[in-house]
Design a protein around this nucleic acid. Structure first.
Lengths: 399, 399
DNA sequence: CGTATTTTGTTCAGCGTCGGCACAAAGTCA
DNA sequence: TGACTTTGTGCCGACGCTGAACAAAATACG
């Protein structure tokens, strides 16, 4: 157990993201000798993070001795993941590999101020934790707002009717301490907190439709406004102060609606669920979320010419915004979430054509545009962010 | 000379960028022990890359034994740097630290096709190399066009009247082989080729106004159109296929001029030298470059209300574009080049105010906006790109 | 059906690289 | 002048990896 310490983190990440099913490919991916890869795998197994099953080989068909299978330990440690959204919150325990172990939803019955809601979601998570005997190595929280770095304050938590600048990271860390949730190294967990779309992008990159992408762009719309996120070479790019990828104020309709930013025709007001419902001539009701209303309309009444025209209008605007982003960021894959995902699936070719048409030289316009594939990807992303210290240095985190 | 091999590259980079004036700070920056830092410095000195002067201490005023001074070897190796622009070309030899050792300009007397011009600039560089007895470790070329990766073709060399898709990297490498220019490891140089604004950003980040910035955005306009570049954590971000930061097609004037991209009011046609001259009511003449005409007008006739109004108009449009980029990229510094630099210096407050006003929450709008400070920054940037293999692994490159 | 071949896992020796420590050197401060 | 502070260097040991030899487990082939 002295061998293979430096490569411990990269090795765990490879198994975590499913890129190292056997020791043989682990050897190749790490670029080390078989001896080292074997020692690393043994160490990770000793730490209780992975398992080595001698029985089932990789894939039949190749000759030579079959390689043993590496898998994540089914009873390994977990992290506490939490998400707050317009309609409520959700807590979960998530193991390595993005596996959701337990989850508990909650609605907004508690007072709506940040401290109470964060306390409630952490308490829900701590309850799950008490239910299982598994070790907890950290905690992450996803909020529907830009989160300023390094302060950890929520700058525009609009759907939550929270005050701008709410110190969400601080509140989360305090709630974790109150609930005795442990973090890496045995110390109390410090609450990793981030924007929900950013964290969703991270999750999709590791376990979803973004796997293998070098530069991944995610765009999504849930309730109001449009969010973006960018993963560069496997790491989230959130800018120098956490405010990158505020894509909602790209101009997509010069003669369009005024936006609170002072301009007109921003993506935020021209391509979100409200814009779709309005374009389709429907009055949004207060009973269910705007996303749900839009989704229902799109799925059940797409044959209606007015609905279809509204969808195409929003797709055209979204395509204009995506083309602008492609020209600036040149990603090699785009993933859409929320209503944008539904619109993509309703008419994949139209969106791709608009993006290709408005990107320079059409070349980078050929970028694949996909739907996100993970359920609760913001929640999984919050867990990913919480796992990061463990992936960076498993020994220190387990210590 | 057995110690300190892994830290060799990082150490050289620190001295190269002026961040390690003494062994003491080298120790701190590398995060190693004094013993290792000393061994690394000794190794770099043995390789002929740096010098250790025992005489002059760092800065007086602190107590304790004064640290020896680390400096770049004045007669160390060089790289061949080349730049092609609308009015001609320029070749140079550049040492570590961005020090121009020798330079030779050239004009467009040779036939204007890519192969001839690249042959001419390489031959000029090879001539400089024969003039000095210094070792050459690589070569870099800056062209005023997006360069597709990994092919190395120039996609829009508009000002050069070259065919789109000219294989500039291939031509450059062939010319280097023809002229017997050596590269890292003693093998023939493989010609590193990139967009001029991208390379200028790299140079400014290492030796100019961008030093110390984590996320650096550069925007510049020379002849026609507007170019952008982004340095993230010290590395150039050129996207998945080299086409990132094509910022010229951000909409800054919805009712503006039609652009060849199919839209209207793009930064490319609304904030370049031609747009400025036109706004000022001047007919651009064919004798000198548009940049030169704009610069002269701005410097000599800024008192003229029409000129001033034109400058403010362009500044407002540029500010709108920069604000859009700030919202997406959240850099911690912006550097302007070409006419944009002149406009910034004519009225710094106006541009900063527009950017702050149109960025979200004003917060990230407070990003510092500076002029570039290096002469020939694209040329120095081409050299930086050529130095990269040496900085990554000095031993292999010197081999 | 047995042997050759291929690929994988493990053990062990060796060594390069770095940290830690002790000591020397070269200044400042009182 | 002497105490203190900071820097440079030599030496030893430990850690982490490579490389080679050997063993194991499958397929391919006669």
């Amino acid at each position: 157990m002295e061998r293979g310490r430096g490569a411990l983190g990269p090795a765990l990440e490879l198994v975590h993201t499913g890129r190292a099913p056997t020791r043989a490919v682990l050897t190749a991916e790490l670029g080390v000798t078989r001896a080292t890869a074997g020692a690393v795998a043994a160490e990770l197994e000793a730490l209780g993070l992975i398992e080595v099953d001698a029985r089932p080989g990789a894939a039949a068909g190749s000759q030579g001795r079959p390689s043993h299978r590496l898998s994540l330990a089914p009873d390994g440690p977990v992290v506490l993941a939490a998400q707050i959204h317009a309609d409520g919150f959700r807590a979960a325990l998530v193991g390595l590999g993005g596996r959701m172990v337990a989850t508990a939803p909650g609605c907004m019955t508690v007072p709506a101020d940040p401290a109470h809601i964060i306390d409630a979601v952490v308490e829900a998570g701590a309850g799950l934790l008490r239910g299982t005997g598994r070790r907890c190595l950290g905690a992450g929280l996803a909020v529907p707002s830009a989160v300023a770095e390094p302060e950890g304050t929520a700058l525009n938590p609009l759907h939550l009717s929270w005050p701008a600048g709410a110190p969400v990271r601080e509140l989360f860390t305090e709630a974790l301490a109150k609930a005795d949730v442990p973090g890496p190294g045995g110390t109390p967990a410090l609450g990793v907190t981030g924007n929900d779309v950013n964290l969703a992008a991270l999750a999709e990159h590791r376990h979803g439709a973004g796997r293998g992408a070098r530069h991944l762009l995610c765009v999504a719309t849930g309730h109001r406004g449009v969010g973006g996120a960018l993963v560069l070479d496997g790491r989230l790019h959130s800018g120098s102060s956490g405010l990158a990828l505020e894509v909602g104020h790209l101009t997509v309709n010069p003669a369009g609606l005024p936006c609170h930013c002072g301009s007109r025709g921003c993506l935020d007001v021209e391509a979100d669920p409200l814009a779709f419902l309005t374009a389709a001539g429907r009055d949004p009701g207060p009973e269910v979320s705007l996303l749900q209303q839009s989704r229902d309309l799109l799925r059940t009444e797409y044959a209606d010419p007015a609905v279809r025209a509204a969808a195409e209008l929003i797709v055209d605007r979204l395509g204009l915004g995506l083309a602008g982003l492609v020209n600036i960021l040149n990603p090699d894959r785009i993933i859409l979430g929320g209503l944008h995902r539904e619109l993509l699936e309703a008419d994949p070719e139209r969106l791709r054509a608009v993006v290709a048409d408005r990107s320079l030289w059409g070349r980078s316009g050929g970028v694949p545009i996909l739907s996100c594939t993970l359920d609760h990807n913001s929640l999984i992303g919050a867990a990913e962010a919480a796992w990061q210290p463990v992936l960076d240095d498993p020994l220190a985190a387990l210590g």
